[in-house]
Design a protein around this nucleic acid. Sequence first.
RNA 1: GCCGUCUUAGCUUAGCUGGUGGAGCUUCGGACUGUUAAUCCGAUGGUCGUCGGUUCAAAUCCGACAGACGGCGCCA
Length: 552
Amino acid sequence: MSARGLGADCRIAGALAGSTDFPANGCPRLGLSTRGRRKTWNHPGASSSSVAASPRHPFNHPRSRTLVQFDSVADILAGKKTGQTVHLRGWVHRHRASGGKLAFVVLRDGSGTVQCTVKGGVADPDSLAMAVRAKLEASVSSLEGTVAADERAPGGFEVKVARFTLHEPNGPTGDFPLRGEQGTEFELDMRHLWLRSTELSAILRIKHRLYKAVHDFYDREGFTQVDPSVITTNACEGGSTLFTFDYFGQTAYLSQSAQMYLEGCIFGLPKVYSITPSFRAEKSRTTKHLTEFHHLEAEYAWWNAEDSRVHQEKLVTYMAQTIARECAADLILLKQDPARLAKIGTFQPGEGGEDIDGKRFPRIDYSQAVDRLKQLGFHVNYGDDFGVPHEKALTEGKVNPLFICDWPANIKAFYMAEKPGTDRVLCSDMMGPDGFGELIGGSQRSEDVVSMERRLLAQWKAMAQSKDFDDRRQFKHEWEAIAARLGENATDEAIEQAYLKPYQWYFDLRRYGSVPHSGFGLGIERVLRWFTGQEHIRDMLPYPRTPARAYP
RNA sequence: GCCGUCUUAGCUUAGCUGGUGGAGCUUCGGACUGUUAAUCCGAUGGUCGUCGGUUCAAAUCCGACAGACGGCGCCA
């Protein structure tokens, strides 16, 4: 988050700006009916209002006297508590003291911030002394006071405090390290404390809604969520570098994709999806790469590549519409216009999409994309992969993402289905607008074992001629390792067969009851970055992992 | 892996053609019963990333190294 230039007021944790998610009366999930005859946990008739009627009402248990019912700042700011006595707890968000006889403590409780005025004569002397010396970000375990509307208070309401207690299990709270202007490096070193910022809180709340939207969508679409393992002995796809580790004496990898495991699931459950961490060991230094990211992957029996695209645009549209509707306040806090997201998935004249059922992302064939880039003055030839400048040129200023379809087989993975009579494969990359990058990579999967084995070997052996030194070294290393294992039997053909051996379980899926099928992988953090319009993908997670950072 | 930028007090930074390093915030002390990132007065705080070189003299010029950040490639 490049928050440079923002005032400290915007920077340290705080107001959640209109969230309606916070339990209105403490903890309704533990709500007990105080009136019902059946005094059971999770009584279906238990309503929070029955507890709220008495703000000091302890949980309905004779030994729970210490559990005072706490009020929420959000309710105070909504005017629901005016004139009432409230009990609050939270953190010191701002602190202003004057003369040892008056202190303003702006309290943050996760639902918002409110000014609490601690005055001599109103508060008892111990409370006043504690409030005067309270440090920024100290925790307030108990604050009791009366709510009043007051124009002098930010937000229009303040709490006139009678009792104020700090929670200091390790002695007086020290000086909070984050304040005012901060550099990127310092923010990242202090990530565990920086997580209290309003922006990160807003982003993580939006991410939560995004996950919920995904699960709602797939539930409605009849999909089953499955849990493929993140530990794998398959160095699948080849392309990306994997993190390796010792798994009880054998080399194992942190998975970079659940795809192959999902493919194995569709024969019992024809439509499956998963959300798993995926790991990439490349030293990518960009604003859209993480070494650990969250991967939404889905796989479906009987669907072809275009069926898959229709599904993908439906998913992404649902995500965008849901976030636009449910997270408007957090989007505004992040200086984003919810209307921008609301437009995603709607027909936009001039973007090249067809106006079928009013919602459709444009598609462009790979060779059309090459022609278009040539018109724009790029030096690209049929067969080339696209780089960032090409992607930007094709997506600049658009509302909807763009599908680039049916790429040449030799620059795509071996498992993609060949397009009959061409040198291409049935696949598409969904490119986010304005260079937000590849959001989805998807394809129809090949069912042809001979073709997949041929392409797998061809891509492996091509590494020997690669321009990249690491590729050549890796090929040599792998080849020699297999040869050494085979000993006297190490003919070229035997080595190649040995290389293919780990994939045999995957090819079995084609040998026994194969079906045409398709699937895709979506980078949750990439989509979230696009939705929240943030500069860097690392702020899409609480503890981002990049090549230079695994702490805190 | 390649390319670029940066590294000065706890934090954010100024420091031109080399001549004994300035500020804001924090912290500490003082004043203050209506502040809004409180304000006002005073004080503390710096082997200028590390090592080496040029020079009478280096934060400043040169080199190497380290770390961070960013761009490319790879991808989600």
